[in-house]
Amino acid sequence: MQYLKGKTAVVSGGGSGIGFAIVEKLIAAQVKTAIADLHLPENLPSNTHPFICDVAAAPAVDVLFNKVYEVIGAPNILICSAGQGIHEKLTEGDPEKWQQVINTNLMGTLRMIRAFVPGMLEKGRGDVVIISSVAAGQSFEYGGVYAATKSALNVIADTLRKEVLPKVRVTVVAPGVTDTAFFENTVSGFHTIEDIGYGAISAEAVADAVMYALDRPHEISVNQITMRPTGQPF
């Protein structure tokens, strides 16, 4: 991790799952790290800076911005990992729940970009990592709203890449089925890793992919990483 020591980062969704795994690896690489999440576990590394924040709410992101700048300054790294799943049929589901997922997955990421990327541009260097999904670009029954948010994130990421190059690098990491509490915390619908039946990759494996992208020389951008259990067909 020769290019990361001494940098600063903010991680949305850093209190659990993939986000938490990323936080642990950033701390191990001596990156001063702020965490934004709705819920924070008791076992956070002692040298992190945790903040309760709903990234879907503009006032909450404004407060987070001010607190992050107070404790670590303008971050070098922004990790957008906050997200929710939903499993509903388009002709039967609840549009209010769809809006909740859109606000978190899409608008939450956009709010974090709008808040923290200008500071990176002022510094002249930075990294943005967006956790997407292999569901992006896919249509499947009951998965339309979730897949739509992830598809939109991919477009947002590539648009951002073009707007901020060469100062800021943008990476999308798109995992398949991952062994976290994601399926237990979907807004509606319920799946388990077992009933999906493809196996699962670990949150740590996804975090390793993020760290690989971050720890390249600045003149090298890793813009897209897709990873899935070998048995997963899509």
Score class of each variant (00 low, 15 high):
Q138G: 00
G176W: 05
D208F: 03
F182N: 06
Y142L: 10
A152I: 07
G144K: 01
L153Y: 08
L153C: 09
S139W: 07
Y142I: 04
H218F: 11
D208K: 14
L165T: 12
S132V: 13
V187Q: 12
T180Y: 10
H191A: 12
I201H: 09
F190R: 15
V145F: 01
G199W: 13
G143M: 09
G124L: 06
K150S: 09
D195G: 01
V168N: 02
I131K: 04
A213M: 05
V173Y: 05
V210G: 09
F190E: 13
H218I: 04
D195K: 12
T192P: 05
F182P: 07
V145Q: 03
V129A: 02
E194I: 02
A157C: 04
R216A: 11
S188D: 14
D208M: 07
V170P: 03
E141G: 04
F183Y: 15
P166Q: 03
A213V: 11
T178I: 03
D179L: 06
D179T: 00
T192A: 07
E141Y: 08
G137D: 03
E163F: 03
Q138A: 07
V173W: 00
F183K: 02
T171K: 08
P175A: 09
K162Y: 01
G126V: 09
K167R: 12
N185V: 08
E141R: 13
I131H: 04
I156G: 01
H191W: 13
A148G: 14
S139Q: 09
K162P: 00
F190T: 10
